[in-house]
Design a protein around this nucleic acid. Structure first.
Length: 438
RNA sequence: GUGGGUGUAGCUCAGCUGGCAGAGCACCUGACUGUGGCUCAGGGGGUCGUGGGUUCAAGCCCCAUCAUCCACCCCA
């Protein structure tokens, strides 16, 4: 088939069968976030282009070539959000949150947009859960963030994830470190890959996460790679050590990754990420860090903050591959009626639906067709409105898994059915693909 | 943005050196107008991603384009 319209490149439809898992995951996340005392904030899907340009850095790839930028009919220069933090911080300043209480714990979830070339785990519209702890410079804030970060994954059933972290220090020491890196690489500059030579100009720290085997061999040849952690100042080091101590105390497993960097100037100190190998190249499941320079960059008072973003699409891919978290479909009832009782069935369905999952045949087909539909529907119980029974004020209730039947009185039916559904889930697993014939 | 792979039924795929478009599953109908899954019989579904080219003849070869996948890049 050739559909006239296709979903735009890099976008996808999530169908009812997929969404059970998503909704479950979102509900789990919401629970964790609430228990940590975070409040939800919803900001616009689009903002001034300049806001993102400012927070992401004019030279960043996101700003240069990955933004959905557009002019509206009023000629405003806008962009679909490529991340959450900028909008959240804009709201923080615009709504004067800093003047209410010093510390704010905020989360958001929803779609974000980036114009990249799609591949598995990378879409142009994708979903993130975003968290920010604004107002505290303390290492304890970093520890809480990372703990929350890990607990979200654990709530989804991830058990073997390892957080990688590093300190990226302050802009000044980072620049100095960049120079050291350049000097270290200078003797071999010509032999670096073209990509890495380019990175050396734009964002020297990024050279460290090259995947080019030639570059890696070169690093080996040059000896010990200078480490960011050796370049940070006293205060940053104290902060770093306090964060590690905090994580140890909480029991969070982590690894120090000296190659983990954040290019943008407002990032300070702690940076962290989590990866899953099964995803291939797009292995980052989530990441975050401290951004003590961000709010000032937006014209606000200097205000520290830590935050992270989790990519839901990738997390869902992993869960799907592992077959975990398959949500249990609600146990339901199928109402089957005869020609003479179809109208009564409609009314009964409406009544039962105040508390129960009820399906019936809107086409009022023959009884055999209704039986087949009931079998496929996944319903646990079949309620038959037989003409004779109905006249007597009774219905026949059949357990579709076991095949047993009973006759029940019409009054109080909802309660009895509710009780039947509440007990003893079917041993066969139920669903449309029943196995045994009684 | 760069390089490569793949597009055939709703899904998973087969289709030989170019010669009448197929299978399994799914779906629908009937056997079975008051008892489902199983079974049996039958049925509907395709401009072979799209547009062009080569050829007597194209699902197959060529070009372009769109989508998707893999890697790079970037990142969640």
């Amino acid at each position: 088939m050739t559909p006239r319209f296709q979903a735009p490149r890099g976008t996808r439809d999530l169908l009812p069968g997929d969404l059970g898992r998503w909704q479950w995951a979102e509900a789990q996340a919401r629970g964790v976030l609430e228990r940590y005392g975070y409040g939800e904030i919803r900001t616009p899907l689009f903002e001034d282009f300049e806001l993102f340009a400012r927070t992401s850095g004019e030279s960043s790839d996101v700003v240069q070539k990955e933004m959905y930028r557009f002019k509206d009919l009023g000629d405003r220069d806008l962009a679909l959000r490529p991340e959450f933090t900028a909008g959240v911080m804009r709201a923080y300043l615009e709504r004067g949150l800093g003047g209410r209480t010093r510390i704010h714990r905020l989360w958001s979830a929803g779609p974000v947009f980036r114009y990249g070339r799609p591949q598995k785990g990378r879409y142009r519209q994708f979903s993130q859960i975003n968290c920010e702890l604004v107002g505290s410079p303390a290492p304890g804030a970093d520890v809480e963030m990372i703990t929350l970060f890990v607990d979200l994954y654990e709530a989804w059933g991830f058990r073997d994830l390892t957080v990688v972290l590093n300190s990226v220090g302050q802009p000044a020491s980072r620049r100095a470190y960049g120079e050291r890196l350049r000097a270290w690489l200078a003797p071999a500059h010509e032999r670096l890959s073209a990509d890495s030579q380019q990175r050396l100009v734009v964002n020297p720290l990024r050279v460290l996460d090259t995947k080019d085997p030639g570059d890696l061999a070169l690093f080996h040849e040059l000896g010990d790679v200078p480490r960011m952690l050796d370049a940070i100042d006293e205060a940053d080091r104290a902060h770093w050590e306090a964060v590690l101590a905090g994580l140890d105390a909480v029991g969070i497993r982590y690894e120090v990754d000296h190659g983990l960097v954040r290019g943008l100037d407002y990032y300070t100190r702690t940076a962290f990420e989590v990866h899953d190998r099964s995803l291939g190249a797009q292995s980052a499941l989530g990441g975050g860090g401290r951004y003590d320079g961000l709010i000032a960059e937006l014209g606000g008072p200097p205000t520290p903050g830590v935050g992270f973003a989790i990519g839901l699409d990738r997390a869902m891919l992993v869960l799907e591959e592992r077959g975990t978290a398959a949500p249990v479909p609600p146990a339901g009832i199928y109402l089957a009626a005869m020609e003479a009782t179809h109208a009564a069935a409609l009314a009964l369905a409406r009544e039962l639906r105040r508390q129960l999952v009820v399906e019936l045949d809107v086409e009022a087909r023959g009884f055999g067709a209704q039986m087949k539909a009931a079998g496929k529907s996944g319903a646990r119980l079949l309620v038959i409105l037989g003409e004779e029974e109905w006249k007597r004020g009774e219905v026949v209730v059949k357990d579709l898994a076991s095949g047993t039947q009973e006759t029940l009185a019409r009054p109080g039916l909802a309660e009895v059915l509710g009780a039947r559904l509440a007990q003893a889930p079917p041993p066969t697993g139920g669903g449309a693909k029943g196995t045994e014939k009684p």
